[in-house]
Design a protein around this nucleic acid. Sequence first.
DNA 1: TCAACTATCGATCAAATGATCGACTAGATC
DNA 2: GATCTAGTCGATCATTTGATCGATAGTTGA
Lengths: 332, 332
Amino acid sequence: MILTLDTNRECPGLVDKFELKLDQAARAAWLSYVGGRTQDEIASQLGVSRPGVQRLLALARQEGLVKVHIDHPLANCMVMSNAIVKHFALDFCDVVPAEPGATDSGSHYLAVAGAERLSRYLDRGEPLTLSLGTGRVVRATVEAMSRIDRPQHRFVSLVGNVARDGSSNRYDGVMVLADKTGGERFLLPAPVVAGTVEEKHALLGQRLFQAIAEVAKEAEAAFIGVGRIDRQATLFQDHFISEAELGELLEREAVGELLGWPLNQAGEVIDCSITRRVTSLPLEMFRDQSLVALAGGHDKGPAILAALRGGWLKGLVTDENAARYIVEHGIG
Amino acid sequence: MILTLDTNRECPGLVDKFELKLDQAARAAWLSYVGGRTQDEIASQLGVSRPGVQRLLALARQEGLVKVHIDHPLANCMVMSNAIVKHFALDFCDVVPAEPGATDSGSHYLAVAGAERLSRYLDRGEPLTLSLGTGRVVRATVEAMSRIDRPQHRFVSLVGNVARDGSSNRYDGVMVLADKTGGERFLLPAPVVAGTVEEKHALLGQRLFQAIAEVAKEAEAAFIGVGRIDRQATLFQDHFISEAELGELLEREAVGELLGWPLNQAGEVIDCSITRRVTSLPLEMFRDQSLVALAGGHDKGPAILAALRGGWLKGLVTDENAARYIVEHGIG
DNA sequence: TCAACTATCGATCAAATGATCGACTAGATC
DNA sequence: GATCTAGTCGATCATTTGATCGATAGTTGA
């Protein structure tokens, strides 16, 4: 004889017992979650002991009788945030809602969320070393920060603030942040990608460069952007890499970059001619730091996913669109 | 200038502040109710203090962001039960689901629910006096009781167990209950409605009658049925009242009866020729007892509602159909 | 029929929650 | 610009909740 779950008149003994318990569980759940009674009240109302109510509530949750819905656009973000944190073993993942009338890449929400994370570090009284990457979002993030007096902190830029033409970027993120806090600033006197391998080694050999690298190594956290690898890539648009080199990267199936280091779909650093000219500190260095990526937009999805898969990141601040891509392609 | 609640670009100061707080509240609510985190975890994740999380959660609930749904047929019953308890100031109200393949009046669920309430009294060790009315549901309720050894309890019948033809009802609820518990039984040697006013006074004058009434007055609780007043009424079907008397009751807008006492829509006892022949103890006597009504079915709705409106009841065991009638006509 | 095992139940304690209170900050008013 | 007020924030305590453990009863198998 097969046990069925519906109210079967033929074999009332077993089924009804469970059904009855479920009924009680539903009652208890209603009184608790909807009615807002305490477990003691429910116990006396249902005529069972308080631990009994406990068990009924546990049963109700376990059997999926209790459905909670958060009626707010952010609820969806939270679902994805949760999934991403769990799947990629992050410390945190902030997903901001897709801004209604925003452009592809520049979301103000993203900057605010990033600024909030940044503030969490800066608020502290003890001296702190923090490093910053480049990217529109990193820049917008530090700009979204409100002024706060923290002269004890130190800020290091992880990628050179020297453009291809040799000009220094006056408004590097580190500059803005140091201005807003009164902290110390350490700028890397180099381009992201050196012109030649020799140039790279010359740079790396400089005492100043090494001193700054030392400071960066002491940083507790790094806030960086995530770059795409395609014709819209910052690396290409800013002429750090040539069209031919872009082609090489695409051929090697690069989908994103972190501090100039190209990554494939699995998140592994691709060893190629460009890699040998990248002046940034090696990604391995950040394994025991909090590497936080700030990036959003559906188009950035593959790049962010690669960074996640590589296990480089400890934290992620992104938006609904990128999160959806990541969940669909990287988890679902 | 009028403040609007949507994201208004023109006046970002005030609105955005509230929106931002609501966003945080939604996040906190999600983490708490869906994610199952503790408030401490949420606090560190959101970067606020624990009391802050408390306030956010309170806000989320207050703003209706949190929707809880109990996925079980009983959820609906609980909603109505709650409404009835509150509106009529009852101690309790049990609403059982409408039994799928049940007849109008005889629901087994109702009897089980009634038996459960009854057990709550009987379980006690201290001697207890309980009185019982008549009605199919009362009868089914005591029959649904499992045997339990309680010789210290006393059971009194509130309405006569003598039919119009003088025959005694062998299976009065009190008999069954006394049999099942081993308790003492007190039966009223009278019909519900006496043949004449004189007969009533003769009955009321009997020492036995008075002795039993005394016991009934000591009762802690009374479990009674609720009668309809129409051609299907038990009073009429069992020939306690004539067709003419039924007509009189209907003319006086009687909609129900409690222990033979006819009630109008407002729940007031109607003073008429029948009232003067009812032998039952006056309803006022039960004001300081727990008067529990057992009755269900859509057709009983008006009668039960009248009893509730009169404020006679302390407890009610009913079914979904009657409860719906009560909520719709008496509360909604 | 007895024994052993298992499932259930209630007492106890630690953790989490809700609420109150005082202090502080920002905004308003004079 | 000073002071007042209202609103917010965080420390503390009472209450509520969750979990573990021992006990008990019911059941199953020998």
